[in-house]
Computed example of a mutant assay.
Amino acid sequence: MIKIVFMLALMSMVLPVNAEIYKCKTNDRVMYQSTPCTQGASDEVDIYIPSVPDNSFEPGDIPDDDYKEERRQRWAEEQKRLNEKSKAIREERLRQERFKKMIWHHEVAIGMTKKQAERSWGKPCDINRSVYASGVHEQWVYCTGKYDRQYLYFEDDELTGMN
């Protein structure tokens, strides 16, 4: 145990390091080394090590409480956004599962796509299409008897009404 404490104490000590670097030129090559050059002239290179100002913060320090509060608020907003997004995804999955069951029972519901409505009721007898600046509106006509008709109304690709 004493050896471990001693080793940790030794490793935590910071000692200043002095090193000299020499720049050597030989045969049109420049080399940097820690010993003076054996041939030719050698220049000692000064290495600039910036000092840390006295008022600097340690890595774990936070300058003020406002910064903490701002980070906490940003985190809370991000969590709220992620929760809303995952809730919307869950709701859409449940909606699609409900639509699958309805297709199986040959039923339609507001919000279905054209493809889902066609899977549920089949191809319509007639399609009346109107194109406006706001989008494409379609009326699908299903012939259920000699004179009986059922209608599905779509805006773009979504079922918006039925009759």
Rank of each mutant, 00 (worst) to 15 (best):
I2M: 12
I2V: 09
F6R: 13
M7Q: 09
M7E: 08
L8I: 14
M11K: 11
I21V: 14
K23Q: 06
C24E: 01
T26E: 15
M31N: 15
Q33I: 08
P36D: 10
T38G: 07
T38D: 13
G40K: 10
G40R: 13
D43N: 09
D46F: 12
Y48S: 04
V52H: 06
P53K: 11
N55K: 07
F57P: 00
F57G: 05
E58F: 11
P59L: 14
D66T: 05
Y67V: 14
E70W: 07
E70Q: 14
E70S: 15
Q73S: 02
R74Y: 02
W75C: 05
W75P: 01
Q79V: 03
R81S: 15
E84M: 10
R93M: 11
E97T: 01
F99P: 00
K100T: 10
A109F: 00
G111Y: 03
K114D: 12
K115S: 14
Q116A: 10
E118S: 15
S120W: 04
S120F: 08
W121P: 00
W121N: 04
P124F: 04
C125H: 06
C125G: 12
A133K: 09
V136A: 03
V141H: 06
C143H: 11
Y147C: 02
Q150I: 06
Q150S: 15
Y151P: 01
Y151A: 01
Y153C: 00
F154I: 04
E155L: 06
D156H: 05
D157L: 13
T160N: 09
G161D: 14
M162C: 08
